[in-house]
Design a protein around this nucleic acid. Structure first.
Lengths: 150, 150
DNA sequence: AATAATTAGTTTGAATTCAAACTAATTATT
DNA sequence: AATAATTAGTTTGAATTCAAACTAATTATT
């Protein structure tokens, strides 16, 4: 797009592009949700997306992947549990943690919902090179490391 | 970090890094807010940051830069107005739009708050090359364009 | 072994975001 | 000129996020 003359402005623009990307991803999935008339929210779909790949993980592990805080996690898992899509089970190895498992009902959604997520990412990366994306990722990760250090 | 074997997983990881970046930026500014004991929120600070650079822009223009929707904007500008930091003025050229101006009180915050934002971006980009960042930005923008097309 | 520090999850109340429906004004199309 | 489509902003109610304080359990330190 437009050239930035210094690194701070470039970082600003990157921050902007980044927020925009999340909005677009949300809108993209929202279209499917509306079209297919499925009773689910973007946030719950994010969690299900993780669990489809591998369930039996605790809330914090999910939170780390989709970048939510603990309390949002409690709220969202409560919601999924009320809908009968997941269940909390005790962790034999650590009594603090609760392992989240898909129920049958939750698992039954996989076939319909999982392609939405994949298609969204495929659409996003259309015509892009893995190497370029890898560079972008490593840049963002480097910025994150910089920001992490207090 | 860890290598991804296909482009969808790479995009997933990028999405994750991106969400994380926003969290870190928030936490970084939150530390300053707490340390300096200033009565402001991260979201309001984002808007002030735009206005410090150039005020007299309408709500939608601000929303486009910081990527918020219209209704969040109404809410946040209301808040800033209640605090006496900004004011809405009529736009002579377009009676739909409202131009947002810093008040004296708002302008007075610039000296203290603006460096926080700059320092955060400087910290984020420490030891990074403009060229690499430019590549990262153009990749994200390309993904955004892909996602924009319905 | 006792103590301190860290970690997983919850609760609370306030702040923010979201989708949807809306009004009023402007711009594009017929 | 009339009509349709788009745009800036608001309102509403529900969903989500946030910071802060908390409990219970685990891990690290003394």
């Amino acid at each position: 797009m437009n050239k930035q003359h210094n690194i701070v402005d470039l970082a600003r623009e990157l921050g902007r592009a980044i927020s925009e990307m999340r909005t677009f991803m949300r809108q993209n999935l929202q279209v499917k949700i509306r079209e297919q008339n499925v009773d689910i929210t973007f946030e719950l779909l994010e969690i299900l997306g993780i669990l489809f790949r591998k369930d039996g993980v605790n809330q914090q592990e999910i939170a780390d992947v989709i970048v939510k805080d603990k309390s949002s996690m409690t709220y969202l898992i409560d919601n999924l549990e009320k809908r009968g899509m997941v269940e909390r089970r005790e962790d034999q190895n650590d009594r603090r943690s609760k392992l989240i498992y898909l129920t049958e009902k939750g698992r039954a959604l996989e076939k319909e919902l999982n392609p939405w997520i994949r298609e969204m990412y495929e659409k996003a990366t259309m015509g892009m090179e893995m190497n370029d994306l890898q560079v972008a990722l490593s840049q963002i990760q480097k910025m994150n490391e910089n920001l992490r250090k207090q």
